[in-house]
Simulated assay, not measured.
Amino acid sequence: MALVRVVIFLKLFFLLVAEGFLINDESMSYNISLGSNLTTDTNPSWVSPSGLFAFGFYQQDGGFAVGIWLTTKPEITVVWTANRDDPPLSSNSTIELTGDGHLLLFTTYGEQKPITGQSDSESATSASMFDSGNFVLYNHSEVIWQSFHYPCDTILGGQELVVWNQLVSSVSASQYSSSGRFVLKMQGDGNLAAYPQNNYVGTSDSYWTTGTYAGRADSLSLNRNGSLYMMKSGEAQMVLNPSTSSQSRKNETIVFRATLNPDGNFVLYSHRFTNPSGNSTGMMEWEALQDPCKATGICGVNSYCYTTAGKAECRCFPGFLFFNDSRDGNFLGCYRNFADEEACSQRGLQLSYKITPFDNMSVAVFPYR
């Protein structure tokens, strides 16, 4: 009788996957017992039941970082990183859910570092990697820690950004493990607002807000159907993307994520999978900024932002050169390719100055305003 029940369950499970209904299902998880471990070389990850998400080591900057990723192809999409801003890990590093119930990182240099924020008194009896992208530590049936409560630059379907919590962008589209230059903050005044990193004081200094003032919201929620809501006491107050209506088709699974991009734009993406082991199709569903140059401070000192084909492009002022002449480095700003002494040493009545006009330019950022 037990064997018949198991067969029926497996048939139902594969039917749900085939019909495209298994979308961020929090009830399905890969359970990890005490003593389980991962290594960078031989066993790098724990994968969710459908294979859509994985927790473990991913390659970064010639080494490794610890995180959670969506198994998109040809490249993975990292959605969470532990110990962000730490230097890359070397090979032969190990993750272990120890016998006393702590998730620890062991490096090749003998260092031991906690991966989660659990206290010494909170001991796990197991862990789970869910198909929602949530990694959870349990003490028997009690949740003692979960990655959904500590987002980096992304929230997933079924996840919330609660009051006083924030998203911090990554440095670049290829460097997930370092904090970038922008912050999206769920404020105590009921407003969701985006700022340059280390430069936010009040909502008036933000470059994008939801306008939900006077305590009208206490969280941002992304549901599993791809709708972004401003919530108050569990009730929807405003939907940010009313025109989004992506629906899964037969033999297809959709995963949604909302990410504060390295350029400061808050964007909702969908990833369609025909099967977990195959290629996926990603597309942008909604973006906060129609003009990416509206992100304050997107370009560094002595440079300005120019929108071309819907993308932000940084350009140097005349007489200046990029500090780093690469796609990601262009956001670092520009330096002078001349010295003041060159002009001061000139003899004669005419100095070699050239004034270049710029049309349709707005200069409204400290210290220029």
Rank of each mutant, 00 (worst) to 15 (best):
G234V: 03
G234K: 11
E235A: 00
A236K: 03
A236W: 02
A236E: 01
A236L: 00
Q237T: 11
Q237C: 06
M238Y: 14
M238S: 11
M238W: 07
M238Q: 10
M238N: 08
V239G: 02
V239F: 03
V239I: 04
V239Y: 02
L240C: 15
L240P: 11
N241Q: 13
N241H: 09
N241C: 13
N241A: 13
P242I: 01
P242F: 03
P242M: 03
S243T: 07
S243I: 14
T244P: 09
T244W: 03
T244V: 09
S245I: 08
S245F: 15
S246A: 14
Q247T: 08
Q247P: 01
Q247M: 12
Q247Y: 13
Q247V: 07
S248V: 10
S248D: 14
S248M: 07
S248Q: 09
R249H: 09
R249C: 08
R249D: 13
K250S: 02
K250C: 05
K250L: 00
K250Y: 02
K250M: 01
K250W: 05
K250G: 06
N251K: 12
N251Y: 10
N251R: 15
E252F: 04
E252D: 15
T253E: 09
T253I: 13
I254K: 00
I254T: 00
I254R: 00
I254Q: 01
I254N: 00
I254S: 00
V255F: 01
V255G: 01
V255Q: 02
V255P: 01
F256A: 01
F256D: 01
R257T: 06
R257L: 04
R257S: 03
A258G: 08
T259C: 12
T259A: 14
T259I: 06
T259D: 15
T259N: 13
T259H: 09
T259G: 12
T259E: 15
L260K: 02
L260P: 02
L260S: 05
L260A: 04
N261E: 10
N261V: 12
N261W: 06
N261L: 10
N261F: 01
P262V: 08
P262G: 11
P262M: 09
P262F: 11
P262A: 13
D263M: 10
D263V: 02
D263S: 13
G264N: 10
N265P: 15
N265E: 15
F266I: 05
F266W: 04
F266E: 00
V267C: 14
V267R: 06
L268G: 03
L268T: 07
L268W: 04
L268D: 05
Y269R: 04
Y269S: 06
Y269I: 05
S270I: 04
S270G: 11
S270H: 02
S270W: 00
S270A: 03
H271T: 11
H271Y: 14
R272T: 06
R272Y: 10
F273W: 04
T274A: 14
T274C: 10
T274S: 13
N275P: 08
N275V: 01
N275L: 08
N275K: 02
N275S: 08
P276N: 12
P276E: 10
P276S: 14
P276T: 15
P276Y: 11
S277E: 07
S277D: 11
S277N: 12
S277R: 12
S277L: 07
G278F: 08
G278W: 04
N279E: 08
N279Q: 10
N279F: 09
S280W: 04
S280G: 06
T281K: 14
T281A: 12
T281N: 13
T281F: 15
